[in-house]
Design a binder for these strands. Structure first.
Lengths: 345, 345
DNA sequence: TGACGTAATTGGAACGTTCCAATTATATGG
DNA sequence: CCATATAATTGGAACGTTCCAATTACGTCA
């Protein structure tokens, strides 16, 4: 059990001052004289006092805790996103409840409820597939700032931070067209996520722009994972008039497609051009290095956290929607001539 | 801002009972009559009351929060570890502060201090490289249960959960020897982590057992990442009497080595045998599928969390050291004849 | 020395719970 | 109808802070 931890009054007693004074030195108030400040601090270290932030939060009814819930931590895109948030949250003197919903809306509901009971000052949510506005309505109505990232959540008045999926996909397809491809597939993902919709729209419009009709058979659904990519490629292989290139929903799918190509004796980047989306760390070192639309998940995480903290500190609840721009990073998997230069910057 | 959130006394007033009674129904006490329970619950939902766990923690001086700090969330091994912990922690009605130390002991110290102020009931630590016993001594001395995972931390009396690195490495090398290899490298990692030491020891002893002398040039250090694997392979390529096989520190390095081999025109699994360590998700779907020592990170995370919760609930602080067993999963990257069977179980 | 202004310190209430001891309501037996 | 046991309910103190109003200490000026 251990005896009760030493509190502010213990050190007040030891230093011969009042608890109010101790509280003042803890919050570095200029009101307290230099001499007593030193005396108090000495006793603080001597008694091994540790601040009870919970008690403070209770009194001030505001906490230094933010909640982060992420749909899939095992996907390195989201892991990096979380790391980016972690960096700014910690540096701002906050701690984070970080939970993994595993794409389950039920679990997501549970953890949000739990975080609420624990008094979070704000929430960053990368929503699970199938999340409904209702799932966070109570939260936002109670005045707690919420930032939705990566996946859009239409119908709820809340700040969002999304990447420019449409423009990214469009640029990628345009690049493939420029390399001479005409039969281009779109691989991976399911209908029900906003990300999928936006990237697919970019794909369609890019083709439309250059007058290539979309062959619906070339849009191949699969789980948005490496394993899903393998499966998607199997389905692609049996098509007549098989595509010569593909834009993949994300890098994980792209890697899976590469795996699948090799298993079929094809060489990614030579016999088949591939472009991914996200630019996860492995994209650069993989063989062939993956041409991909760079989203900079870590940077996105940072910006999301900054946005949330800004809202927490300012008390303003008006929604803000940020679309972060993306850029195509040409490496080897698309079969373009290898330029090292653009990686230098 | 919003008006102060509704508290237990608000609903007490509304229901015409005392706050004590409300508290009793919240904790599902059998003391309160069925009729009042219903009445109170009705007002709870009506007023949209949400429990203030912070206040409760203050009163009872015990919390439902555990701390988890992980050295590198962007490594999928650790991400999966975290997900495993998340599962059991959430299910037990706890929430977790989950922080990423990024292998920085300073940051690690900071977050542990911060978690302590926030009143965690226990801590699971996957230590950053260079962590010293002192970094957690204060914590354990204050009576808070700590479980150290994955990397050993000698010199501190604390529960640990490690995988059997020695046996795993030994089995892997034995397998390579059985396939006829005699010049076997050990690739990736730095001296200063316990994991490295244990796996290397397994490697050495396996070779010793069959009478193959260790060629120190074949032990190639590098960052324990995919990029590190690429670099390690470059160093290996220039050796005279070049090895024909390698055990890699972990799967990330192994993938990097595969990348490097391809870049050098060699085919992993045919011209060079590779075995990894950890069995991250991608190991199964990669091409060639990675032969690796399966550690089951998610399972480890679960067990670590269970161990911690057991200690929290029982109040016993005696240390417990668990070594989880590992098994060699033979796939294609080692060049053995492909057996599908062992994947079935 | 007394009055006054500023600097430093302090007591006590409050935050939202839990828990104990005490009280009140209800049932049971004679 | 009283005594008594049991079931329900309750008031108030406590947890460790913050914050306000109030107090005390100290120098300065007339």
């Amino acid at each position: 059990m251990s005896r009760t931890r030493t509190s502010i009054v213990d050190i007040a007693r030891a230093a011969g001052v009042s608890k109010s004074t101790v509280s003042l030195v803890l919050q570095k108030s200029p009101l307290v004289s230099e001499s007593t400040r030193e005396k108090v601090n000495a006793h603080i270290v001597e008694l091994g006092y540790i601040y009870n932030r919970g008690a403070a939060s209770l009194r001030q009814s505001k906490s230094k805790i933010v909640g982060i819930v992420v749909n899939d931590l095992t996907n390195s895109f989201f892991a990096e996103l979380a790391v980016g948030m972690d960096m700014v949250v910690q540096s701002a003197g906050y701690v984070q409840f970080l939970a993994h919903s595993g794409e389950s809306v039920d679990r997501q509901r549970e953890v949000i409820a739990s975080m609420r009971e624990n008094g979070i000052a704000g929430l960053i949510l990368s929503p699970a597939r199938g999340t409904e506005p209702n799932d966070i309505k109570a939260l936002v109505e109670s005045g707690i700032p919420v930032v939705v990232v990566v996946r859009n959540l239409p119908g709820v008045k809340v700040s969002t931070l999304l990447s420019d999926n449409y423009a990214g996909a469009k640029a990628a397809v345009r690049h493939l067209v420029g390399l001479g491809h005409r039969r281009i597939a779109f691989m991976g993902g399911f209908q029900d996520t906003a990300v999928f919709g936006e990237r697919l729209r970019g794909y369609r419009n890019a083709l439309a722009d250059v007058g290539i009709p979309v062959d619906e058979r070339f849009i191949i659904h699969s789980a948005p994972s490496r394993a899903g990519g393998v499966i998607a490629l199997e389905r692609l292989m049996v098509l007549t008039g098989r595509p010569t290139a593909a834009l993949c929903l994300n890098d994980a799918v792209a890697f899976g497609v590469c795996d699948g190509l090799r298993a079929n004796g094809l060489e990614p980047g030579k016999s088949f051009a591939i472009i991914g989306f996200d630019d996860v760390i492995e994209a650069k070192t993989a063989v062939p290095a993956l041409t991909t639309v760079s989203v900079d998940p870590q940077g996105m995480g940072q910006r999301a956290a900054q946005l949330l903290l800004k809202q927490i500190n300012s008390g303003q609840r008006d929604q803000e929607s940020i679309i972060t721009s993306v850029r195509l990073v040409v490496r080897q998997s698309c079969g373009a001539s290898v330029k090292q230069s653009e990686e230098m910057a």
